[in-house]
Simulated scan of single mutants.
Amino acid sequence: MVRLPLTPAEVERGQRLGALLRRARGERSMLETALDAHVSPETLRKIESGRVATPAFPTIAAIADVLGLSLDAVWAEINQPEGGVAPTGSGHAAHEQLAS
């Protein structure tokens, strides 16, 4: 499978996702969070650093669950444009974007 290069918007969204997860994790260790979410610490590190801008939906769902974040809140936060107003859209589209 050929993976297309990420758009600047996808890279920015990945950086916002990483920042959100780091904030939500707070003082909790990356290792503890990753193990509780059943993902590797390296995967969590890459997502938090923005190196994996489009992680799989089940991965984000597991991490969000461990951190007590709703997927709606995650989606709203990572899709805010610079002005801070989240775009509207269907939930189905949200799941497709996170999974890509």
Rank of each mutant, 00 (worst) to 15 (best):
A99L: 03
A99K: 07
L71W: 04
Q80S: 01
A19T: 15
A94G: 14
H95M: 11
Q80E: 13
H95N: 03
W75D: 02
V85T: 14
A86Y: 12
S29E: 02
A64E: 02
L69K: 02
E42R: 13
A37I: 05
V11M: 10
N79L: 02
Q97F: 15
Q97I: 10
G83V: 10
R25T: 04
A61L: 13
L71T: 08
S70N: 08
P55L: 09
M30F: 09
G50L: 06
P55N: 10
P58A: 06
R25S: 05
A37H: 13
L44H: 05
D36P: 01
D36M: 11
T33V: 10
R28D: 06
A37M: 09
E12Y: 07
A34F: 07
H92S: 11
E27W: 07
R28K: 13
V11E: 11
H95P: 00
P8M: 08
A62G: 02
A99T: 08
E32L: 10
S40G: 11
E48N: 02
P87D: 08
E12N: 00
A9P: 00
S40H: 14
P8Y: 07
R51P: 03
I47Y: 06
A99I: 00
F57I: 00
A73Q: 09
G91L: 12
P55F: 08
L35C: 01
L71A: 01
L98Y: 04
P8W: 05
L98V: 13
T88R: 14
A64H: 06
A99M: 05
W75E: 00
A19V: 09
P5S: 08
G84A: 09
P55G: 06
S90Y: 12
S49G: 12
V11Y: 02
L17I: 04
R25F: 12
G91W: 13
R45K: 10
G18R: 06
N79W: 14
R3L: 10
L17K: 09
R28P: 01
P41W: 05
L17R: 03
P41T: 03
V2K: 14
A24R: 14
T59S: 10
E42L: 12
A34M: 04
I63R: 02
L44N: 03
T59N: 09
H38W: 10
P41H: 07
V39L: 03
T43V: 10
L98A: 14
A62S: 15
L21N: 04
A93H: 15
W75L: 01
A73W: 07
A24F: 13
G68L: 04
S90M: 08
A53G: 09
P41V: 03
K46V: 01
L4S: 09
V85Q: 15
L6F: 15
V85A: 14
A9D: 13
A53C: 07
R28N: 06
T88W: 12
